[in-house]
Write a protein that binds this DNA or RNA. Structure first.
Length: 182
DNA sequence: TTGAAGATGATT
DNA sequence: ATCATCTTCAAG
């Protein structure tokens, strides 16, 4: 079952936690389909979050974060890596969840499952580029999110500081990075 | 118009 | 610890 707009129309921290264990489905032009379990997320929430791209004001790059929940926000970092985010919260409130790590659902044949850790690697693996900017998870034919097979409990979640945002003043301290305890 | 700074990853 | 690489944004 595809996650609907209502799933993302909530507090970003809650959505970031809820996304753990959920499945990203990516369908390529040639029909090949990849499914991956989300294992690490990061919340970026509101104008007071100095680590967020939307902390100053709405710009050409971050405007999608102000749009309605369930949209895809893609941006280029360090001139070479794309990062995949899902927009959260009501229209007008800038917020999104960054997908930092996934675990590929392998064919039945091969036993092991491969973990892709790092937002740049996630996009490389799922072949996400700028063309996904503004894609709607509720209706897209090439990317969406689904309920996962596993149920993640509160005790299974580790909260940490967010990665790569040491410039962000007091919001550096906020434990808005979430991953599944192994 | 310009330049400084990144929500990173690979390598030394 | 350093570098590759280039868009974005705010300052001038």
């Amino acid at each position: 079952m595809r996650l609907k707009k209502s799933f993302f129309d909530k507090n970003t921290i809650a959505v970031a936690k809820n996304l753990l264990g959920k499945k990203i489905v990516r369908v390529f032009d040639n029909g090949v389909r990849i499914e991956a379990i989300i294992t690490e997320t990061e919340a970026y929430h509101g104008l007071n979050d100095r680590a967020s791209h939307a902390s100053r004001k709405k710009t050409e790059r971050n405007k999608i974060m102000f749009d309605h929940p369930g949209l895809v926000y893609v941006y280029l970092v360090y001139g070479m890596h794309y990062c995949l985010n899902f927009v959260t919260m009501r229209e007008g409130f800038p917020a999104a969840v960054l997908v930092r790590a996934i675990k590929l659902e392998q064919e039945i044949r091969s036993a092991k499952s491969e973990t892709i850790s790092g937002p740049g690697k996630v996009c490389r693996e799922l072949k996400i580029d700028k063309s996904f900017y503004g894609e709607n998870l509720a209706t897209s034919k090439r990317i969406w999110a689904e309920e996962g097979r596993i149920k993640i409990k509160k005790n299974d979640i580790i909260a940490s500081r967010r990665v790569g945002v040491n410039y962000a003043g007091e919001s550096v301290e906020w434990l808005w990075n979430f991953k599944i305890k192994i």
